[in-house]
Design a binder for these strands. Structure first.
Length: 178
DNA sequence: ACGATGATGAAC
DNA sequence: TTCATCATCGTA
């Protein structure tokens, strides 16, 4: 059976949640009503106030507010003057965490995922559910379609020892063309 | 290798 | 109010 992932699923450590999102589906309902499903193949965990790579390491600010809120909400922010980044908030209230969706099948790169799915900041702080038009579904009945590789996170060299954490998770799907 | 391009947060 | 920085991407 396929479930829409809600607060209870996300209310854990981002490092625990992240690998479990591999093989799940990012589902988007576009303004015209069409629904598309995308297999999640790459994610990164940002966990706690200590994690120097996380925006939340600077504390509670207008931008990071949502990361301190309840799990299962979207954190969408703008970076490099042109890219929207899509994250799902994890962990208990007041314990900031998030998982960045870096790629879905056929779309590599976090900026490309959001562009392709028409995800912008107006989804920020929205719940991941049908009402917001963007949610995640997971089939708990079947196994992960591939092998999971762990590496350090991309673009966070400034984060000192936190940059080394193997908190990037990639799903290598068998015999698939890009 | 590097420029585009604008929000963010910290310093002043 | 200014400034460096940035969870990136396309072109070279």
């Amino acid at each position: 059976m396929r479930n829409i992932l809600g607060r209870s699923f996300f209310e854990r450590s981002a490092v625990e949640v992240a690998p479990e999102l591999l093989g799940a589906y990012l589902v988007r309902r576009l303004p015209d009503g069409t629904i598309t499903r995308h297999l999640i193949v790459e994610v990164e965990a940002y966990e706690g106030i200590e994690d120097r790579a996380s925006h939340a390491s600077r504390g509670r600010t207008p931008r990071t507010e949502v990361m301190f809120g309840p799990a299962g909400h979207w954190y969408v922010y703008f970076v490099y003057g042109m890219h929207e980044m899509l994250n799902i908030v994890t962990g208990p209230v007041n314990h900031p965490g998030a998982v960045l969706i870096r790629a879905v099948e056929g779309i590599n790169g976090p900026g490309r995922v959001t562009k392709k799915l028409c995800v912008t900041r107006d989804l920020n702080k929205n719940k991941a559910n049908r009402a917001s038009g963007l949610w995640i579904e997971k089939d708990f009945g079947s196994s992960v379609p591939g092998t999971i590789t762990q590496t350090s996170r991309i673009g966070v060299d400034y984060a000192r020892e936190w940059a080394q954490k193997p908190w990037r998770f990639v799903l290598d799907t068998k015999n698939k063309e890009t």
